[in-house]
Computed example of a mutant assay.
Amino acid sequence: MSLNCLIVDDEPNAVKLLELHIQQTTNWRIVGKCYNALEALECLKQQKTDVVFLDINMPRLNGMELAGLLPSHVKIVFTTAYSEFAAASYNYQTLDYLLKPITLTRFLAARQKIEAAFRTPAQADKTEDDHQDYFFVKSGKTLQRIRLQDLLYFEGEKEYVRVVTVKEEVLVYKRLKEIAEQLGPPFIRVHNSYIVNTSQIERILDNHIHIADKRIPLSEKFRADFMALIQQRFL
């Protein structure tokens, strides 16, 4: 689905992360990146906009104040570090409320809500591949499409990361730390060299995680966070 979206946030790193999520997982067009509300109002006059990704805590005019000035056809996704404004945000034409840092999995859930809001009844009846959660990774000159449900684990190799799925392995030029910062549950880091998809784990034995035919070490550094996530699935 093609949509026009505007990013409004006074934090450059937050803008960059959201831009990356949009570029990797959608066909949307980013019509502008604004660092305050006044810039956003000018951009909205010049660019057809469907969705605004809107920070709340900004100087001069905050996100809530800007939301009250937006046309009714422009939908809003609030992006903020503050959970206490969530209820008030739905006084506007709000589709979702994302807490920073925005993980890739959380963004993908928001993407489904956004596209559902703009989908016609006829489109909603179709079972298109677009409905699958996926992203692209760059391997050499190739942009490789990866479905989240197919991912087994990520293995760091110095300046590279090996992306291992049920079908293939792809080597990408990126640090494991960068990937860990973008992903949320069911993905979790378990070792300096590994991120695993917990939904693909077959068993945990002797401080090792077994996924497919791979035996992955569980380090003490990451053990507590990993076990806290696993315990959510205990019977």
Rank of each mutant, 00 (worst) to 15 (best):
V77A: 01
P185V: 07
N197S: 04
Q24V: 03
Q46N: 14
S83P: 12
P59W: 08
S219G: 07
R203D: 02
R111D: 10
E42S: 14
T94A: 14
D50M: 05
L176D: 01
H208S: 15
T127R: 13
E220R: 12
Q144E: 12
R60W: 12
Y97C: 04
Q232E: 04
K100P: 03
V190M: 09
I102S: 02
K126W: 10
T26G: 06
A116C: 15
Q231E: 09
E169D: 00
I188L: 02
T103S: 15
H191S: 12
A116M: 14
K221Y: 09
Y160F: 00
R175T: 06
D55V: 14
L104M: 12
L104C: 09
V196E: 01
L61D: 10
I102P: 03
M227W: 01
M1I: 06
V164H: 00
A14Y: 07
S139D: 03
V164G: 01
A224Y: 13
I204E: 09
M58V: 10
E220P: 03
T120K: 09
A180M: 06
L17T: 07
V190P: 05
E157P: 02
S89I: 06
S83T: 10
E65F: 14
I230A: 08
R119D: 14
V74I: 13
K167Y: 00
I209P: 04
Y153T: 00
Y35G: 02
K16Q: 11
E115H: 06
L148E: 08
P121W: 03
L20C: 09
R29H: 05
I230T: 11
V170R: 00
